[in-house]
Simulated scan of single mutants.
Amino acid sequence: MTAIPRSPRLLLLSTVTLAVAGIALLGIPHGQVPPATSRATAPRAATDPSSAAAVPPAGQPTVGTAPSTPLAAPLSPARESALPPHGEGVAGDRSVQRNLEAAWPADLPAHDERPLLTAGRALLRADATGVGRVKWPTVFPDSGGTVAPAFATARFRIQAAIARRDGSPEKALVHLVWAGMDRGGTFTDLRITDWFFTRTLEKGTAPWTWQPRI
């Protein structure tokens, strides 16, 4: 019997070996990591501090983090203050009045608000310029004498005025914003003065009476 040459036998063994290896590789799904590799990387994922902090335990809120929210828009000047900037002149008076009314909503009926505003304006004018003090002898006991006004009549104006309750329906205050030039020649606007009143129950008298603030 003739012996088979060695080279064909080696070729046959190599072919069988490659076939077995190919079958083994085809048995693993595409993209799957071999089991040995998964076991090697699992402990690292569990002990990595960055991974543990990124995902909190189930049912527990995160600490030290907050959802991303848009920044709030800056407040407009009208929202930051009820008064506009100084120096706008007569043109800004309407804005002063509007902002005061928005910042402090009305809480008095019109039949109370009207006489309060009239009295408050007259008191402020008399106090600042000396005009009409004789009408308020209890407020200005020295009105019969010669009193130099603190502010020039020509440069005095009331920029805005509101009347509101002062803690109860029987008490009220008149809040005034005004401008004027003092004796030294300094003109200043957005000055603030409050006058306080109580309701008058006597017939034949003004519905509201001025009261000093103690």
Rank of each mutant, 00 (worst) to 15 (best):
M1I: 06
I4V: 12
S7T: 13
P8N: 00
L11T: 13
A24E: 07
L25M: 13
I28M: 11
P29C: 00
H30D: 13
P34F: 12
S38F: 08
A45C: 09
A46I: 09
T47I: 09
D48E: 12
A52L: 13
A54S: 10
V55A: 14
P61W: 14
T62C: 15
V63Q: 12
V63H: 14
A66M: 14
T69R: 00
L71M: 01
A73G: 04
P74I: 08
L75W: 03
L75T: 06
S76L: 07
A78Q: 14
E80G: 07
H86T: 07
E88M: 08
G89R: 07
G89S: 05
N99T: 04
A102V: 02
D107C: 14
D107K: 13
L108R: 13
A110T: 06
R114H: 05
R114K: 09
L116N: 05
L116W: 04
T118H: 03
A122S: 12
A122L: 11
A122Y: 02
L124K: 05
R125S: 02
A126Q: 09
A128E: 06
G130Q: 07
G130W: 15
V134N: 15
K135M: 11
W136L: 08
T138W: 01
F140K: 01
P141K: 07
A148M: 13
F151N: 05
F156T: 11
R157Y: 03
A160Y: 09
A161P: 01
G167A: 13
S168Q: 13
S168L: 09
S168N: 12
E170A: 15
E170N: 15
V174E: 04
V177G: 02
W178A: 05
G180N: 01
G180D: 05
M181D: 11
D182V: 10
D182H: 03
R183M: 10
G184R: 04
T186V: 10
F187V: 00
I192G: 06
F197W: 06
R199T: 04
L201V: 02
P207W: 02
R213F: 07
